[in-house]
Computed example of a mutant assay.
Amino acid sequence: MTNDSTSTFRAGQTGLIVRIPEAEPAVRAWRERLDPSARAGVPAHVTVLFPFLDESRIDALVHAALADVLSTHRAFDLRFETCGRFPEALYLTPEPDAPLRRLTEAIAARWPEAPPYGGRFAEVVPHLTIAQGQEDAVLQDIEADLIGRLPLTSHVASVELLVHDGSKWHVRASFALGG
């Protein structure tokens, strides 16, 4: 989960992610060094919605609503063939990204008080962050290493709810997609 404004997270923050375990062998070492979320316990993933509701607001009704919203979306496959860039950040680009966008849109529509990335960006770009806060030369080196490890494919059948305890992120629940 990328926190673009700071490398710190606070207790009670939550987020929804799609875990991409197939990417771990290619990206783990880079992420552990250069992505604050990896150091805080977040696996290789594509963010669906961050930040989500504060942990104090997540009860049985929210769990049921998440299960209901997510069950209307079919499981899907992703392929990662290329890297992309944000300023001072490198990521793997998921294709197709439309199913990820639909997940984000559906959850944000159900909980409009939790817009993606706090509403800071006009467009949500699905991505798997590798490195943040690095100079272009470092990102070029990482990209050169990753290109030889691509493509990667992943089957997405669930969305995980993560909660930060003040020092690490932990999986609180997993919600199955339909189909």
Rank of each mutant, 00 (worst) to 15 (best):
A67R: 11
D145K: 13
F80E: 02
A157K: 07
E105F: 02
R85Q: 08
L103Y: 08
L34H: 15
R33G: 11
A89Q: 14
L152E: 12
D145L: 10
V46L: 01
V46I: 05
E88H: 14
C83I: 01
E32Q: 11
A89S: 15
G119W: 12
P112C: 11
D59K: 07
D97F: 10
L53T: 03
E22T: 13
R19G: 01
R28W: 09
P21M: 08
P126A: 09
E32I: 00
V27W: 08
F52G: 02
I107W: 08
L146W: 12
A157V: 02
L70I: 00
L49V: 03
E135M: 10
E88A: 15
T104N: 12
F86T: 00
L161P: 05
L78S: 10
G148R: 14
A75P: 02
E160P: 00
A131P: 10
L103I: 05
P43V: 09
L34W: 15
Y91S: 04
A144Q: 15
E32T: 00
Y117F: 13
P115S: 09
F50I: 03
V138L: 14
S154F: 02
L66Q: 00
H63S: 05
G133P: 05
P43I: 05
I142R: 07
L61Y: 01
E160T: 04
E135W: 09
F80N: 04
R149M: 11
E143Q: 13
S37H: 03
W111F: 14
P25E: 11
E123A: 13
D136W: 08
D145Y: 07
P96D: 05
A157E: 12
G84H: 02
E24I: 07
G133H: 09
D54H: 13
F80P: 04
A38I: 05
Q132F: 06
T47M: 09
G15T: 05
S71R: 15
V125N: 07
S158E: 15
S158M: 07
Q140W: 06
A109R: 15
E105N: 12
A144R: 15
D59S: 06
V42K: 06
D77G: 12
T72V: 01
A40C: 07
A64K: 11
A157R: 14
R74Y: 02
R110P: 01
L49P: 00
L34A: 13
R120S: 10
Y117S: 03
T153V: 14
P116S: 08
A67T: 03
V159C: 00
A26C: 11
G41V: 02
A60M: 03
V42T: 10
H45W: 02
P87K: 08
D141G: 15
G118C: 06
